[in-house]
Amino acid sequence: MSANILTVDDSASIRLTTRVTLTTAGYNVTEAVDGMDGLNKLKDGQFDLVITDLNMPNMDGLTMIRELRKLPAFTGVPVIFLTTESDGELRQQAKAAGATGWLTKPFDPENLVKIARKVLGR
């Protein structure tokens, strides 16, 4: 059974690249355009992994993770930040909010698949 991954990013090109990379690796991908859209899709679906940007309109990635972690069904779902940010303080905030890992843009597609396989165990 293939894992269901939600990608959350306001950049259409990043969503496309992420979707193509992950679907080619055999994963099912659903896209969201910002944290609010992502949170709504999370509430309506079953996801095994969330990959989110940090800086987005309507709701940023940190806020989305904090809200996600309040939902019992998603307390153990891994969340990877995929962002241009590399600040150590932001990384600490992300970890405190419940992020599992951090990947900096631009990203190597093979590395994204490697990380997805690692956190999903498949």
Rank of each mutant, 00 (worst) to 15 (best):
A3Q: 05
A3L: 12
A3N: 14
A3K: 14
N4Y: 01
I5G: 05
I5K: 06
L6S: 01
T7F: 02
T7R: 02
V8T: 01
D9I: 07
D9V: 01
D9F: 14
D10K: 01
S11V: 06
S11N: 05
S11G: 12
S11F: 15
A12Q: 08
S13L: 12
S13N: 13
S13C: 13
S13G: 13
I14Q: 03
I14H: 08
I14C: 12
I14L: 12
R15Y: 09
R15S: 00
L16G: 09
T17G: 01
T17A: 14
T18P: 02
T18K: 03
R19A: 07
T21S: 04
L22E: 00
L22C: 04
L22M: 03
T23Q: 08
T23G: 11
T24G: 10
T24N: 15
A25D: 06
G26M: 03
Y27G: 07
V29Q: 09
T30D: 01
T30Q: 05
E31Q: 04
V33Q: 14
G35K: 08
G35P: 11
M36F: 11
G38Q: 06
N40T: 00
K41L: 12
K41M: 02
K41A: 03
L42M: 06
K43A: 09
G45P: 07
G45A: 12
Q46L: 14
F47W: 07
F47A: 06
D48C: 06
L49N: 08
L49G: 00
V50Q: 10
V50F: 11
I51G: 09
T52S: 13
T52F: 10
T52A: 01
D53N: 11
N55R: 11
M56L: 07
P57Y: 03
M59H: 10
M59V: 07
M59D: 03
M59G: 01
G61F: 11
G61E: 10
L62P: 10
L62A: 06
T63A: 06
M64E: 03
I65D: 02
I65A: 04
I65C: 09
R66A: 15
R66K: 10
E67A: 02
L68P: 00
L68N: 00
R69E: 04
R69H: 03
K70M: 05
L71S: 04
A73W: 14
A73K: 02
F74W: 11
G76C: 07
V77L: 01
V77T: 07
P78C: 05
P78E: 15
V79N: 08
V79Y: 12
V79R: 08
V79Q: 01
I80G: 10
I80W: 06
L82N: 04
L82K: 13
E85W: 15
S86H: 15
D87S: 02
D87G: 02
D87Q: 09
E89L: 05
E89R: 00
E89F: 13
E89M: 14
L90K: 13
L90G: 06
R91Y: 14
R91F: 14
Q92I: 08
Q93L: 12
A94D: 08
A94R: 13
A94N: 13
A96N: 11
